[in-house]
Design a protein around this nucleic acid. Structure first.
Length: 207
DNA sequence: CTACCGATTGACT
DNA sequence: GTCAATCGGTAGA
């Protein structure tokens, strides 16, 4: 059963990503993450993001220079940056400025389409935990290192679409420190849809 | 090659 | 709330 209409799935323009990380992180809330794979299509509404900044942010993977792992962060905006942490994958979107490296981590989505496929990939996970958390979302959407550096929307594999523009009103966006980061812990660079049950993290950071 | 780390998760008290 | 398994990536010998 399909909830999302095809005309809502047009990829966002590259210019959307060519702005500062905080702005993109906030405006990504409510957008649709779309994954088309041989097994079928999955769609989720983005409900939680985190910004990682090019300047003065020791938690950003790029602060100590370019390596094979983080190379796609240094490329043009609008590409995927997929990296491994604790034996799992996390999905980021590369944003402005180019050559300096900053990104937005997609931490949680609300499942809309392709739920059976997500369940199949996630195995025995509770329905509520299908896509709640950056690595869970990647497993449900079959995102791994093969998609690192993938230009979102170039070819129907992985992209982000506008969805329903009025779904979210700005005063329903909350912010908090980033989850799990051990440096720059005081900065409020995590953004989420207030009260949405698919947001991860401690309860006080979901209200 | 080995040693260590981590933007996590799932199991448990 | 606590805690340990997890393994790709990095740094260094």
């Amino acid at each position: 059963m399909t909830v999302v209409k095809n005309h809502q799935l047009t990829p966002l323009p590259v210019s959307f990503y060519d702005r500062d990380a905080v702005r993109v992180a906030q405006e990504l809330l409510g957008k649709l993450l779309v994954r088309q794979s041989p097994g079928g299509r999955t769609v989720g509404r983005i409900v939680e993001t985190e910004a990682y900044l090019a300047q003065g942010d020791p938690a950003c993977h790029a602060t100590r220079g370019m390596t094979r792992k983080n190379a796609s962060m240094f490329g043009p905006p609008g590409r995927a940056y997929v990296y491994a942490i604790h034996a799992r994958w996390c999905f980021n979107v590369v944003v402005q400025p180019r050559q300096v490296a900053s990104a937005v981590l997609i931490r949680a989505v609300e499942p809309l389409d392709g739920v059976p496929l997500m369940q199949q990939r996630r195995g025995p996970a509770k329905p509520a935990d299908l896509t709640r958390g950056p690595a869970r979302l990647c497993e449900a959407f079959d995102i791994d290192r093969r998609l690192d550096g993938w230009q979102l929307g170039a070819g129907r594999r992985l992209w982000i679409a506008e969805g329903h523009p009025t779904w979210l009103s700005p005063n329903h966006i909350g912010c908090s420190p980033r989850i799990g980061v051990t440096s720059a812990a005081e900065r409020h660079l995590r953004f989420y849809v207030r009260g949405n049950p698919h947001v991860s993290g401690p309860k006080r950071w979901r209200l």
